[in-house]
Design a protein around this nucleic acid. Structure first.
Length: 462
RNA sequence: GGUACUCUGGCAGAACGGUUAUGCGUGAGCCUGCAAAGCUUAUACAAGGGGGUUCGACUCCCUCGGGUACCUCCA
């Protein structure tokens, strides 16, 4: 499997001969998670599910930034402690992402639970002479890392000339960034330099190395993290360890809303609760996977609706397979193999989920074609089921199970409707159909028989 | 201003320099008591503009232009 690496700008092989170690920069827990977070996290969710499906062991670490100015500001505004705010939004995070069918990471380390490690890390940086204490805190000295800017392709000189950073007399260079901020106001921890709290970037260096080692496979996050966050992580980590940090930097593009940047000032932020309520997890996942992860993707009603239509095809396919009992059974093993291989090849070449989806939908369409032509027999439907299940699992798409009782009830109603139809009591037949519709059961009348499907109830935005 | 990414048919979105991708939409048809779903079929001769390299460019190079992101917190 190859992934485009932001640092080298080349496609790099992921070493799948042993456990694959992935670190994803998670969220700062001070507010609702939104569709932008969802996209990044869903991309990595599918990545790990794909590798796991191949039998590869994954160690997947995703942090929570739970100490930060934004959290503190929010706490002050709501007259709460920073801890109350971060705890609330961590709980909220899990609620949202469980709802999006995202598999839990191996571990979700928090900055506040690694203060000791962070302090040790900073001590090492000072020992190595790349960080220095001032009366405001401890700063990393950018000029001590000659390769500074290598990830974001920026030159220190350019950054300095365009610096819009507040001038801090104590800093040796305006680009130097805090690894420890001295402060009296809670939350604070003791440190050799005095009471304070860690800077933003240091937690990810510390925790990624702690859990995954100095040189792990993939470090990911949104594109907006390239500078300064990941740039600074590299500077700190490589200064500290003296060896290469992450092997591959994988960055996910931004989500725009109707072509516009999503931002609080514009007021167009789509929270995960909002998108789940309107479209449901399956459609949101399809949407997030519909473009190449590295490119921007635009959230619009039209696109979401397109994914709704596609989702209906998947549901139809699923139920056609359940009801398949045709006498004829066309041999389509070769076709299944072909789409399966295409699916995998697409993901292997820089994780092209769009192409993978196109293979997935080929299988869906072929199945629906066979059903329409009454060629969906037991044998081929079983073969399709196996491959389809694999793909659905990797993509994280779910179709709810139906209980025996529900099936019984549905079948009884269909029976009644058939009777009415035979007697040409169409009004009565339609009544029964309406009743089933209210139960989210849709009927599909094929030539000879009627099958049912449970239709996920999608509100569809506006 | 700097850096990165990007610009393909109504929309979305692919493709080793040489082959009509594909999907949605739209038209027609099949099926049906009606509907829905599904299926079949037709439909786009597209590549931001201009140069260049090449026998041949969506694909490489130059240039001009548009968009987005980052340069301050941001997935």
């Amino acid at each position: 499997m190859k992934i485009q690496d932001t640092l080298s700008k080349l496609e790099q092989d992921v070493d799948i001969s042993k456990k694959v170690k992935i670190y994803l920069c998670g969220v700062t827990v001070y507010d609702e998670s939104h569709i932008g977070h969802a996209r990044t996290i869903i991309i990595f969710d599918v990545l790990r599910k794909y590798l796991e499906n191949k039998g590869i062991e994954i160690e997947f670490i995703q942090n929570f930034t739970d100490v930060d100015d934004k959290i503190i500001n929010r706490a002050n505004a709501e007259n709460k402690t920073a801890d109350e705010i971060s705890t609330k939004y961590i709980k909220n995070y899990f609620h949202d992402f469980d709802g999006l069918n995202v598999k839990r990471a191996t571990n979700y380390p928090k900055a506040t639970e690694h203060i000791e490690d962070i302090v040790k890390f900073i001590e090492k940086l000072i020992e190595k002479g790349v960080a220095y204490p001032t009366k405001n805190g401890v700063y990393f000295s950018v000029t001590k890392f000659p390769e500074y800017g290598k990830l974001s392709k920026k030159k220190i000189d350019d950054l300095q000339s365009g610096a819009r950073i507040e001038v801090d007399e104590e800093k040796k260079d305006p680009l130097d960034f805090a690894v420890w901020k001295l402060s009296d106001k809670a939350p604070t921890w003791d440190s050799p330099w005095g009471k304070g709290r860690p800077g933003w970037h240091i937690e990810c260096s510390t925790m990624s190395i702690k859990y995954l080692g100095e040189n792990f496979d993939i470090h990911g996050g949104g594109r907006d993290l390239i500078f300064p966050h990941h740039e600074n992580e590299i500077a700190q980590s490589e200064s500290c360890t003296g060896s290469q940090f992450a092997k591959i930097w994988m960055h996910v593009g931004m989500v725009t809303i109707d072509g516009e940047k999503m931002s609080k000032s514009i007021g167009n932020v789509k929270s995960i609760k909002h998108v789940i309520k309107n479209w449901g997890a399956n459609i949101i996942r399809l949407f997030c996977l519909s473009g190449h992860y590295s490119k921007p993707i635009d959230y619009s009603k039209e696109l979401l609706k397109e994914n709704l239509i596609k989702w209906r095809q998947v549901e139809t396919c699923h139920y056609e397979l359940i009801h398949a009992n045709s006498e004829n059974s066309e041999n389509i093993d070769e076709f299944i193999n072909k789409t399966g291989t295409e699916f995998d090849n697409a993901l292997d070449s820089d994780f092209n989920t769009h192409l993978a989806l196109s293979a997935f939908f080929q299988l869906i369409k072929e199945t629906n074609r066979l059903a329409a032509e009454e060629k969906l027999g037991k044998e081929n439907s079983n073969a399709i089921k196996i491959e389809l299940k694999r793909m659905l699992e990797i993509l994280g798409l779910t179709i709810p199970e139906v209980t025996e009782n529900e099936i019984k009830e549905i079948n009884e109603l269909i029976e009644k409707r058939e009777q009415s139809r035979k007697e040409k009591q169409f009004e009565e037949a339609d009544k029964i159909r309406d009743k089933l519709n209210e139960m989210n059961v849709e009927l599909i009348d094929h030539k000879g028989k009627t099958i049912w499907m449970i239709k996920e109830n999608i509100k569809a935005e506006k």
